[in-house]
Amino acid sequence: MSKDIKEYLRLDKFPHIWCPGCGHGIILQAVLRAIDRLQLDRDNIAVVSGIGCSSRAAGYVDFNTLHTTHGRALTFATGIKLAKPELTVIVLTGDGDCSAIGGNHLIHAARRNIDLNVIVFNNSIYGMTGGQYSPTTPTTDYAATAPYGNIDNAFDLCELTRAAGASYVARSTTFHAAQIPLLVEKGIKNKGFSFIDIITACPIYYGRMNKMPDAVDMLKTQRDNARNIKQWDIMTAEEKQGKFVIGELYNKPAPEYTDAYRQLREKTHAL
């Protein structure tokens, strides 16, 4: 029998600061379920986060946690993993934190295929600072800094990390909350860079500015626009307009960075 997931929380910090209807709590719960299913030792897990709404998550979980500077969660996590390769390092980060401020770190961590598990709380907005558009805000959507509609093209973070060299890439939404623990579990088991993009709702900023001020409406939108990978493969380009694919998008084991580093060290010590 698995444990009650509340055992993994710092209960004195609750109720959490996230807004009513914010999906971050759903993702955090799903990540804890994945850790619970794997029966990992709590002392061998390091949770690293950057700055933003999503990064508050590290403060609520009872593992080794590190709340770092803006965009630099992956750099600190790389340091932890290289110093202590036996730890399971989980990076909880937001879309702005990982793809804008820390965009360079994301592609280089993926390029190295270092054994980090990155879970992106992708709400398409900078929630903590008042709703500015982020690199994942869809074109023509509204934000505090795009009152007449956003003209930027959005990043597809899964395609980006896959192209950069990640060995496991998956996407889900908070509506498909039952699926998230399965993806996170596979990501943690994967030896290499695991990137899991979770589409979540920010009803207070993103939703209010895009005619979905209600958490229920936002979850319904996720339900209507998400397509399973098997269905996605047989869809035409026209049908794919405005929709996105969910599920396990890429899984191909590749040589891992800390292993390569250990081998290099052994080789140079033998000289």
Binding site: W18, G21, G25, Q29, A30, R33, T174, A177, A178, L219
Partner: peptide
């Protein structure tokens, strides 16, 4: 358990 896993506030 759908309400439990979709509850953002635990």
């Amino acid at each position: 358990q759908l309400c439990v896993i979709r509850c953002p506030d635990f």
